[in-house]
């Protein structure tokens, strides 16, 4: 396989790409699931059912992108997997407990006796919140190079709050898309609050990342990169304006046409933030310590995974799209028959 040159060079890049896509899809897709969970206590009982119905058919598959992400990290960059996960042992454990609680609460709340339902609703909320906080902590510590110092932990805690805000925000825009009437009105209010959180988080990451290392600073603030990268902050600002206008418009609109705009814009915002981060750290997979080339598995093993991925990934995307088409439109009550 010398078609594209030395596979020891391009295979790690290809897998960094697959890893990036998996994590991005996870953050967007489970992001809105977790956001809905975080917003749950703000709604009344009937609305809670509807909120969970809006994510019911999807959350399982959404979470699978995390398994693929950590799986690709494990199989394509095993050394990095060990370094990152042992450095982040505690937040990873908190996240896993959160994911467990969230996932089981989803089932238990409808199958357990009625008087236990509110306990499982709280479990659902707590699990979603823990997961988001832990992921924010992990992101913060990763940005700061996985070094545990007071300032880094303080930054990571700030990131934890930002990720909670960001997920709540995209969750609220999802609810605007998938619900109607009073609940949709509430979601619009949540989204307007969440927008400030998202904007703040975006600014915090953008400011902190270049100062985490000189290398990243130079990548952004040298010519011609500075000009080439200018669209990122400009488009992000534009999206924030679009979101603000759209939310204001929907709040006063009678028929609420264009209820898809906030979610779409929120997704675009997440994509841009992710591209910015990915650009900052490439080609490092453990910041400033290990590049994707240092950490990659043997080419013959990567090749056999790549072939499988290229064959299977379009199929996965196909039936994932099928599921979103089947459950399109406003969320209805979840029924097994």
């Amino acid at each position: 396989m010398t078609l594209f040159g030395d596979p020891a060079i391009w295979l790690p890049v290809a897998f960094a790409g697959i890893l990036g896509v998996s994590i991005l899809l996870y953050v967007i897709l489970d992001g809105f699931d977790l956001g809905v969970g975080i917003l749950l206590p703000l709604a009344d009982d009937a609305e809670k059912d509807r909120m969970i119905a809006s994510i019911g058919p999807f959350w399982d598959a959404n979470e699978t992108w995390l398994v693929l992400g950590v799986g690709i990290l494990l199989v394509a960059f095993p050394t990095a997997h060990g370094v990152i996960l042992t450095a982040l042992y505690l937040p990873v454990a908190v996240m896993l407990v959160g994911l467990i609680l969230r996932g089981v609460a989803f089932e238990f709340r409808i199958k357990a006796p009625l008087e236990r339902k509110s306990i499982w609703n709280w479990t659902f909320f707590a699990g979603s919140l823990m997961t988001a906080l832990a992921q924010g902590l992990m992101l913060g510590l990763y940005i700061m190079g996985l070094e545990i110092t007071l300032i880094n932990v303080a930054f990571a805690l700030l990131m934890a709050l930002c990720v909670v805000g960001g997920y709540a925000f995209i969750g609220a825009t999802w609810l605007i898309l998938k619900t109607e009437e009073a609940l949709q009105t509430k979601a619009l209010i949540w989204a307007r609050f969440g927008l400030f959180g998202a904007a703040f988080g975006l600014a915090a990451v953008s400011l902190a990342t270049p100062f985490a290392s000189d290398r990243i600073f130079d990548k952004w603030f040298s010519m011609p990169a500075f000009v080439a990268l200018a669209p990122l902050p400009i488009v992000s600002t534009g999206l924030l304006v679009v979101l603000w206008l759209s939310l204001r418009h929907l709040s006063v609109s009678e028929n609420r046409a264009g209820d898809w705009v906030p979610f779409t814009a929120a997704v675009a915002l997440f994509v841009i933030a992710f591209v910015g981060l990915a650009y900052s750290f490439y080609p490092y997979i453990v910041p400033e310590k290990l590049t994707i080339y240092d950490a990659a598995s043997a080419p013959e093993s990567l090749m056999i995974i790549l072939v499988g991925t290229l064959v299977v990934m379009p199929v996965i995307l196909g039936y994932t799209a099928l599921s979103y088409v089947i459950f399109r439109g406003k969320a209805t009550e979840l029924r097994y028959d």
Binding site: G56, P57, F58, D60, A61, E63, T64, V67, L68, G71, I72, L74, V75, A76, P78, S297, S301, I304, I305, G308, T309, V312, M313, I316, Y319, T320, L322, S323, I326, F327
Partner: peptide, 21 residues
């Protein structure tokens, strides 16, 4: 690695998406 990757690719997504339907 490849064995685990094939499990995720050929099994996990299949069951997770279709269980919703």
């Amino acid at each position: 690695g490849p064995l685990l990757a094939y499990e995720v690719l050929t099994a996990f997504f299949l069951e997770a998406v279709f269980i919703g339907i």
